[in-house]
Nucleic acid binder design. Structure first.
Length: 881
RNA sequence: GGGCGGUUAGCUCAGCGGUAGAGCGCCUCGUUUACACCGAGGAUGUCGGGGGUUCGAAUCCCUCAUCGCCCACCA
């Protein structure tokens, strides 16, 4: 006997072990089956599961389980990412707690520390994935810094370098003064900040008392100014072009140039130019051959290029000092409050400084061309489609990708420098040495570039490096390109685009056919969940309290396309109740000795009740299949919820009660078999979303002899013929209810006392059955206080006739006549309004001319219904008096 | 400054040209033998405002408001 409620935690652990042990997660490269592949976006190796993971992995697992059941050879490739900056920061923080720094430790020791931390915490995320019920092929788990994946990274780097698509360049980069590394444009977040706009007066050379006024939000950068720009058409400044200003505090002579970059309407119309510390100024400086003066060190403190009093000052301290000094000199024209966007590093939170440095770049522009074409021609499609615009927008304006990071944790760049700075890029040190020897004609000492690659460089290779590339493995041949990539929009640029670039370059084919972009999970107020906001909902906590299946079902039900998910915990509770409901349906079946009958043919049911549920199930199965194929997880979940609760439990099981209590033994047997069969189909259909609960129910139902659902075949019930003729899905039920409702309206007549009612339930011999099954019928009729008229005496009983029925309904005491009158009056008003609306529509010539015939027919039917309803209500009201 | 998305029942959200929906919450009622994590019944909406297209608009178009997100080099 099943327990009264479902116990998720015990079940989860037990079945997960059984699944994994059974080999059900594994792919079969030699199988004749069609492969189905999803690359799991590798989470940070030392991270832990958050709600975004829960969503994305649940959706992927649903797809994988569904296609596995459909007979595909599924590969869900798992793994973790070394997450360069993020991981390094965590370990540095740990060191700081012990008053140490990575520099005090040295590179080698530090990297050892990170590996140790990885060993310690690296299992967390995969354990949590298991708790979520995820079913990837764990045997194939990879880490981006595994030796073979690292080799792939080196090979790609070397090839791109030799093809001229990776190069070294000195440019302005986004410098993170806290982490001491360059970061990519994508890793910079701009935050609106309230600051000030200072107007400084720069004296004009050779013109006593004349000034040019420039505005700045970053006064400290003036120490690096090497020019002032004005717009060529700006009358106010035309006479100054070609002259020089004298940079206050420094005394440098800087040219005043005409450049269209200067906006006459902004600030004073004249703009100071600091080529080494501003992306725009860099361009202006280049056009006018202005000097580049770097005034910051790697901490963004002032270096020796500035006058002595400012050296060594932090940039923000320097800012105050400079403003004060300028004020003292009377060179501050005015100060205005100003709101500006300040760039911050997305990891460190530090204010990013544009800084001139040598970095490695990847020619993303060239690599982007094929992926753009692939999306244009539909070789890769985005779902929902509107993300393609975002993709195009970014890809068509793509900038060189800075791939070097001044970190220690990651793939060290395979480039070695000769004594004269000559670069040798090779896959190994030996090859570099050989190349150097060939170049210099003798062995020389080489120094390896200390930088590592951007984390996304290695994850860009993920779809093929995890399959064995560069070796031509059978897995690579079989599983690439993959079927679908499932991810949030936040990494379209970081990852999706780059996988497409690298996939094309090295495999000659798109890495995935479909990119399904799901929503982001936010809290109830729509805020992004973050530790600092304290609004994190922990998926593991929800799993603990509601069960994994409830969380999975919730996420699926909320995963509507194109919209963020605002997660309310009450939804999880609601779906936990749903799980319990299904569980109890299984208990009911068990109590009524509903067992699977081998060879049961759902198409051959005699009882209409059973023919009806078979049709309704077929309809549901078809909806579920269509929804999953279209990535409409919420529709799949909704269809299953509705069928399970609203159809199977509320109606079918209730109807089956009089049958089970009746004397039609053949009907009973058929209903038992049908109940068990429907339940069996249902747990199959629900399995991808609720894997644990369904396994538990299936285990009971099949007596443990049916294997596990995870390896079961998807049921073919969607293709079953639906006996529409007999009941047209729910028509039978609807007709029953409406008959009873009609009777109820008529009942409000004291003179109806003599009425007898009859409803024929399959297999039940009424009225005798009524005595035994009054409660069940009362429920199914959604009426209160039903008793056999004969028992209670002939009072206010109703005659309900459905197919020559024999159900007596006595509603004595169930009706409050005043209430009923009010209700009927309202109903009459509504009915009249409704009828009026329809009649106006039907009387409208244009409607009659233009609406589709079936629409008109529908309206006619509705009209008839409304007329009948109105007449009925009026009659009932009249009889009420 | 560009772009995208939201605005539907008290809350969280579906629906996206032809009768306004779900879950949760709320109010009544129910000691019914699957389930109180239940059942029956009920209340609650000018579908953000304003225009337009259409026989017909929550649904399509325009516009305004508002909230949120993404991108962007404006001193």
């Amino acid at each position: 006997m099943l327990d009264k409620t479902f116990n998720p935690s015990e079940t989860q652990a037990r079945f997960y072990r059984a699944w994994e042990a059974s080999g059900a997660f594994e792919c079969h490269p030699d199988s004749p089956a069609l492969p189905y592949t999803i690359m799991m976006p590798p989470p940070n190796v030392t991270g832990s599961l958050h709600m975004g993971h829960a969503l994305t992995f649940t959706l992927q697992d649903i797809l994988i389980r569904y296609h596995r059941m459909r007979g595909r050879d599924t590969l869900w490739q798992p793994g973790t990412d070394h997450a360069g900056i993020a991981t390094q920061m965590v370990v540095e923080r740990q060191l700081a707690e012990r008053q140490m720094t990575r520099r005090s430790l040295g590179r080698e020791k530090f990297v050892e520390q990170v590996w140790a931390w990885k060993a310690e915490s690296g299992g967390t995320i995969t354990r949590q994935l298991r708790a979520l019920g995820a079913s990837p092929d764990w045997r194939r788990e990879r880490f981006t810094m595994d030796e073979d994946l690292s080799a792939a990274v080196r090979k790609v780097f070397v090839r791109l370098y030799k093809d001229g698509l990776i190069y070294r360049d000195k440019r302005l980069v986004n410098w993170d003064p806290k982490l001491h590394t360059a970061i990519s444009d994508l890793e910079v977040e701009s935050h609106e900040t309230k600051g000030q706009l200072w107007y400084f007066k720069y004296p004009i050379e050779g013109a006593e008392g004349e000034f040019v006024v420039v505005a700045t939000t970053r006064p400290e950068t003036m120490l690096g100014d090497t020019g002032v720009a004005v717009h060529p058409d700006d009358e106010r400044y035309r006479h100054l072009v070609g002259k020089h200003a004298i940079l206050p505090l420094v005394g440098r002579r800087i040219p005043i140039v005409a450049d269209e970059y200067a906006d006459p309407t902004a600030g004073s119309g004249a703009v100071k130019i600091t080529p080494a510390h501003d992306f725009n100024d860099f361009q202006v400086g280049r056009r006018h051959k202005l000097e580049l003066i770097n005034i910051f060190d790697q901490d963004a403190a002032l270096n020796d290029a500035v006058p002595e009093p400012y050296r060594g000052l932090d940039r923000f301290v320097a800012r105050k000092r400079i403003v004060a000094d300028m004020e003292a000199l009377g060179l501050v024209a005015k100060v205005e409050p100003h709101t500006l966007m300040v760039p911050h590093g997305d990891r460190s939170g530090a204010v990013i400084e544009p800084w001139l440095s040598d970095q490695w770049y990847c020619d993303a522009k060239t690599l982007a061309q094929e992926p753009i074409k692939a999306v244009e021609t539909g070789r890769t499609v985005f779902v929902p489609k509107n993300w393609e615009n975002t993709f195009f927008e970014w890809m068509r304006n793509i900038q060189p990708w800075n791939i070097s990071r001044q970190l220690w944790w990651g793939h060290q760049i395979p480039a070695w420098y000769g004594p004269d700075g000559k670069i040798f890029v090779e896959e190994t040190e030996a090859e570099a040495a050989a190349a150097a020897k060939a170049h210099y004609g003798k062995s020389v000492v080489l120094n390896r570039d200390p930088d590592v690659l951007d984390t996304w460089f290695s994850s860009a290779l993920w779809p093929f490096s995890t399959l064995g590339w560069p070796e031509p493995t059978k897995e690579l041949k079989r599983y690439y390109p993959t079927d679908v990539l499932v991810t949030g929009f936040d990494i379209i640029f970081f990852w999706v685009a780059r996988m497409m670039m690298m996939g094309h370059r090295f495999m000659g084919e798109v890495p995935f056919r479909t990119v399904y972009i799901h929503a982001l999970v936010r809290d109830e107020r729509g805020q992004k969940m973050s530790k600092s906001k304290g609004n994190i909902i922990d998926p593991l906590d929800l799993i603990e309290r509601y069960g994994c299946d409830s969380l999975r079902f919730t996420l699926a039900a909320l995963a509507a396309q194109g919209r963020d998910i605002k997660l309310a915990e009450s939804r999880v509770g609601g779906y936990r109740n749903f799980a319990t409901k299904l569980w109890n349906a299984a208990r009911f079946a068990e109590m009524n000795r509903c067992a699977l009958v081998p060879g049961f043919d759902p198409g051959a049911c005699r009882l209409r009740l059973n023919r009806w549920i078979v049709g309704a199930l077929a309809e549901t199965a078809a909806r579920v299949e269509r929804a999953i194929e279209e990535y409409k997880f919420n529709e799949a979940a909704g269809a299953l919820y509705q069928f399970t609760w609203g159809t199977f439990c509320d109606w079918y099981l209730e109807f089956s009660k009089p049958v089970f209590g009746g004397e039609d033994e053949a009907g009973k047997a058929e209903t038992r078999a049908a109940t068990a069969w429907v339940l069996a189909q249902l747990v199959h259909l629900l399995h991808p979303i609720m894997p644990f609960l369904t396994e538990a129910v299936w285990e009971h139902l099949s007596g443990g002899k049916g294997g596990m659902l995870i390896s079961a075949a998807w049921p073919g019930c969607a293709a079953l013929p639906r006996d529409a003729a007999a009941m047209g899905e729910l028509d039978w039920v609807v007709s029953l209810i409406s008959a009873i409702r009609t009777a109820r309206a008529e009942l409000n007549v004291p003179a109806a006392a003599e009425l007898a009612a009859a409803v024929r339930i399959e297999g039940a011999e009424v009225p005798d059955r009524l005595r035994a099954h009054g409660e069940a019928i009362r429920r199914l009729a959604r009426l209160k206080a039903i008793e056999h008229a004969a028992e209670a005496g002939p009072r206010r009983a109703v005659q309900v006739v459905v197919e020559g029925a024999t159900l007596f309904l006595d509603l004595a005491g169930a009706i409050d006549f005043d209430k009923e009158r009010t209700r009927l009056e309202k109903e009459a008003k509504d009915a009249a309004g409704e009828l009026d609306k329809i009649q106006r529509k039907l009387g409208n010539e244009q409607f009659m001319a233009k609406a589709k015939p079936e629409v008109i027919e529908e309206q006619r039917e509705r009209q008839a219904e409304a007329q009948a309803a109105l007449a009925r209500v009026k009659a009932a009201l009249a009889r009420l008096g």
